[in-house]
């Protein structure tokens, strides 16, 4: 990360990119790519990974065990008012009970803009 490679072909500076955990050096001049030992193999593994369903990563915050996400503190006092047949769930901070605010003009605008 902190060192700068020089392109062996055109001698311009190479810039380091991180592609899903794999460091790739790419030349700013000729766009050539330098791979360290093992990186081609790592990229090949990534290439095969594109369509695989995600394995859940280790959560950043402690999640309660299976069975849903009890809501924290006084924000989540209400029980989930619906069955969750298709694993919709919600996060620990969620208020996803859908209390009909979708008719609100502000929400309608938000649906269609950045």
């Amino acid at each position: 990360m902190s060192y700068t490679l020089q392109c062996p072909k055109c001698h311009a500076a190479m810039r380091t990119y991180n592609r899903n955990g794999v460091q790739i050096e790419q030349c700013d001049g000729c766009r050539g790519i330098f791979l360290d030992y093992g990186e081609l193999e790592a990229l090949t593994r990534l290439e095969g990974q594109w369509s695989q369903p995600a394995a859940p990563p280790p959560p950043a915050a402690p999640y309660p065990p299976a069975g849903g996400y009890p809501q924290a503190g006084h924000y989540g006092a209400q029980p989930a008012p619906y069955a969750q047949p298709g694993h919709y769930g919600q996060p620990a901070w969620g208020h996803g009970q859908g209390h009909g605010r979708s008719k609100h003009g502000g929400f309608a605008r938000m649906l269609f803009s950045s």
Partner: peptide
Amino acid sequence: GLLPLERWASLLDAYRAGGGPAVPADDDPW
């Protein structure tokens, strides 16, 4: 809390039915 569950579910169901890789097919997406 702005989006009713049924709309969120229809998006998520269609995404899963289409084999979308972002969420587990049959597990908690959160």
